[in-house]
Design a protein around this nucleic acid. Structure first.
Length: 758
DNA sequence: AGCATGACTTAGAAGTCCATCT
DNA sequence: AGATGGACTTCTAAGTCATGCT
């Protein structure tokens, strides 16, 4: 996989793309296309079941095709009804052979008091009757080969259950458990009790996420400080003093003056509308045109402020740092089930102007200030409850241990809920992350079966099944996202697999030397463009042509499919399977394969690292993780090239000197000249290495120009693959993961051995 | 039974820090 | 010592997906 196919175009300039034409096509009232007779469907369904085993002959196939096509012509009112009915049917039938889900997520054993290590920590045997979804608990088939003092046969049994392969049990002394705590300086507290290994403990099986939770509540944004008198605002050339509320909102705009956002019509319109709401009647009557507003003094003032901040003395900077540290210590941690855990985002989002991505209809709107009265606190009943700031009160205090958040509030732009949750290094996030990769590994075990199945479904008599099968093929092959439907007009117009529209693909029966090429061009999450041309199998191609019949560009490609239908189907195929598991699976398996393919044992460290990055890059390309090329890219590339050139000159010189030395030695044969030769030889070697390292760096950087590796590394690649790779090649983990990443993946670093296989 | 909503994961950009070079 | 630029951290938007409600 060479990533060749990806176009490198970037985030579409919001506003520049002409995609307005189809906004809001009403997908339900779309004119004719597609309809199938319900009865027919039923019959076919029956027929299908009865002769499922009989291989379709080519002819049958062709007939089916015709039939399908034929049925497309009827009215769509019908179609929608049919769709609904079909959905019903589907739901009904979906109960037939649902895999049993077993145990829950409850705490089988209390995690407090550092318990003895339990190797995989997930007891497959339900201790209580299952309630709702519980899959996955059992899938942690991690087999600790070297765990400290193994005991429990329970663990062993469990291992047996889930791990058909190897059964080794060498009891190795537990390795590096304790983490230097004196080392991180601060934190005299001796808790942190040498890094809690939650992954060696059992998980809850009752759906509760914790049993005890105590925290200090959120940190609110600083109150607004009015501008000094000499910073003025001008309207239509005349100075005008704004009242604090309007002034504050004006400063939000002023601070963004250098940003492209402020040049966009929608942004300006939304901002102005919301700004006016903050104005007094007098202000409102005067200020009627944003173009007549002059925020320059404010803008200059803020620039000066940040400049001044940079120029602060060391002492002052230190003081600020200390104060931040104090706040972090006070609010940045919570106690969850006897362990002190780091909170992810303990600061409430400050007010400001909404910065949506891509062509967002709400960009520029005012994100209002969050007050204690907006806040819901979640904690244990028996904990010390966080106190609201003096004279205020929380909106609500609740004690819900079925959720993981500590604080929440409703945001005013989309009306969605925002949360304060724990850091990725926390048990609660780590367990989930681990579980995610285990689900992906289960998919690995049955993916070939599923592939065979969807290929087969390409021939189905039912349109909805074919659509489902083709969509799944895209999700699998191209790592597309599921593609939920979105409320129109509320967000940027972006799509995923199920929400692809006719206008997003182009079919090329022949293209260059390839057949059946599908060209994708659409905006995905975060309005990142996905552009790709790929050859597909003939059957897929024919199906796509069928799906496109009688449709307008703005119609849904998969009009009989949505994420809910798809996921329900997947759930039936494998417990816990959803569309996004394919992304995780394909990303991780790609990393593993690429590492195997690219790492040569003889390579030196930089070369190995380059291989790793290339493997990582292959995944990033697959997942379409892009970034805007850094503004300083060209320049930094040039700098690097200069360094390389210099190094090359240096090398030439060194070589020349070596040659001279050799000649000298040949002539004199004395000890001194021999030493000289050695010295020069070493010098050459050293410089060669340095040069190579620089060249690797350059290659790496160039290839990385607009590819973002971080997202896949953090969210899609089973960390145990990387850990194993490091161990196998004796590369220190620090070369691959920085400190934060090591904290997040502590579980993997601790448990994966060099022979881990995804 | 469809839809809205809540909870949680994934995402790129912006902001900050810090090492290295000049 | 100050500037520079890249690495790391923070921020918060934008997805996914299951659920609970009507």
């Amino acid at each position: 996989m060479s990533g060749d196919h990806r176009n490198t175009d970037f985030q579409v300039n919001p506003g520049s793309k002409t995609n307005d034409s189809h906004k809001h096509k009403d997908k339900h009232k779309d004119k004719e296309h597609r309809h199938k007779d319900h009865k027919k469907d039923k019959e076919r369904e029956k027929a299908k079941h009865s002769n499922r085993e009989g291989r379709d002959s080519e002819k049958k196939q062709r007939d089916k095709e015709k039939e399908l096509k034929h049925s497309n012509g009827s009215s769509d009112k019908h179609r929608d009804k049919q769709k609904e009915k079909r959905r019903d049917e589907k739901v009904k039938s979906s109960h037939i052979d649902k895999p049993k889900r077993e145990n829950e997520n409850g705490y089988a054993s209390p995690p407090h008091i550092k318990s003895e290590p339990d190797d995989n920590g997930f007891d497959p045997s339900p201790k209580h009757k299952p309630t709702k979804r519980e899959r996955d608990d059992e899938e942690f088939d991690y087999k600790p080969k070297k765990v400290k003092k193994e005991d429990e046969k329970k663990a062993k049994k469990r291992r047996q259950d889930y791990d058909d392969e190897e059964e080794e049990e060498d009891i190795k002394p537990k390795k590096k458990t304790k983490v230097k705590k004196g080392m991180d300086g601060k934190k005299p507290k001796k808790e942190e009790e040498e890094k809690w290994k939650w992954w060696e403990e059992e998980r809850a099986t009752d759906g509760s996420k914790w049993r005890f939770l105590e925290h200090k509540g959120p940190v609110f944004a600083l109150p607004y400080e009015p501008l000094p008198q000499h910073i003025r605002f001008y309207y239509d050339g005349k100075q005008m003093k704004l009242n604090p509320p309007a002034e504050e909102v004006a400063t939000f705009f002023a601070k963004m003056l250098d940003h492209e956002y402020t040049t966009k019509d929608i942004f300006r319109k939304n901002f102005f509308k919301d700004w006016r709401k903050e104005m007094t009647p007098e202000e409102k009557s005067k200020i009627s045109d944003l173009n007549k507003c002059n925020f320059n003094e404010m803008s200059e003032y803020f620039k000066a402020q940040s400049e001044a901040k940079k120029q602060m003395s060391k002492d002052e900077k230190l003081k600020i740092k200390e104060e931040n540290e104090r706040i972090l210590q006070e609010y940045g941690f919570c106690i969850m089930d006897n362990h002190k855990e780091r909170i992810g985002n303990f600061r409430i989002e400050p007010p400001g102007l909404f910065r949506g991505r891509g062509d967002h209809p709400k960009m520029g709107m005012l994100k209002r200030r969050i007050r204690p009265e907006d806040i819901i606190i979640n904690c244990s009943k028996d904990s010390k409850h966080p106190k609201p700031p003096a004279g205020t009160r929380w909106k609500e205090l609740r004690h819900d241990n079925k959720v993981t958040w500590l604080v929440s509030w409703t945001e005013n732009i989309q009306g969605s809920i925002k949360y304060i949750m724990l850091n990725p290094s926390s048990r609660i996030k780590g367990e989930k992350d681990w579980q995610k990769y285990e689900t992906a590994r289960r998919l690995k075990k049955c993916v070939e079966r599923l592939r065979a199945q969807y290929r087969d479904d390409w021939k189905s008599k039912e349109m909805r099944i074919r659509q489902r099968a083709v969509a799944l093929y895209f999700i699998d092959k191209l790592a597309l996202r599921a593609g939920n439907e979105k409320e129109e007009g509320e967000t940027a117009d972006t799509v995923g697999c199920c929400s692809l529209r006719v206008e997003h693909i182009n079919l090329h029966p022949k293209m260059d030397d390839q057949e059946y090429v599908v060209e994708f061009d659409f905006l995905g999450k975060d309005s990142i463009r996905y552009y790709n041309k790929i050859p597909v199998e003939k059957r897929v191609f024919k199906n796509l042509q069928l799906f496109l019949e009688n449709k307008q560009p703005e119609d849904d490609l998969f009009d009989r499919l949505n994420t809910s239908i798809l996921n329900k189907h997947l759930q039936e195929l494998m417990d816990g399977l959803t569309a996004k598991v394919f992304r995780t699976y394909n990303a991780s398996i790609t990393l593993q394969q690429q590492l195997n393919a690219l790492t040569s044992p003889d390579d030196n460290l930089p070369a190995k690292i380059l291989s790793y990055n290339r493997a990582n890059r292959a995944v990033a390309v697959l997942c379409n993780h892009q970034r805007a090329p850094p503004k300083t890219f060209e320049k930094s590339m040039q700098n690097l090239q200069t360094k390389i050139d210099d190094k090359q000159k240096q090398l030439a010189t060194a070589r020349k000197q070596l040659k001279t030395a050799k000649a000298d030695h040949k002539a004199s044969h004395d000890d001194k000249s021999k030493k000289m030769v050695e010295m020069k030889r070493k010098a050459v070697q050293r410089i060669e290495e340095q040069l190579m390292k620089l060249q690797m760096q350059a290659t790496d950087r160039e290839e990385n120009k607009q590819i973002a590796l971080g997202t896949s590394k953090l969210n899609y690649l089973d960390p145990r693959i990387s850990v194993a790779w490091c161990k196998k090649w004796d590369i220190s983990i620090e070369k691959i993961y920085n400190k934060t990443q090591r904290e997040k993946f502590a579980w993997a670093i601790d448990m994966a051995e060099d022979d881990f296989e995804f």
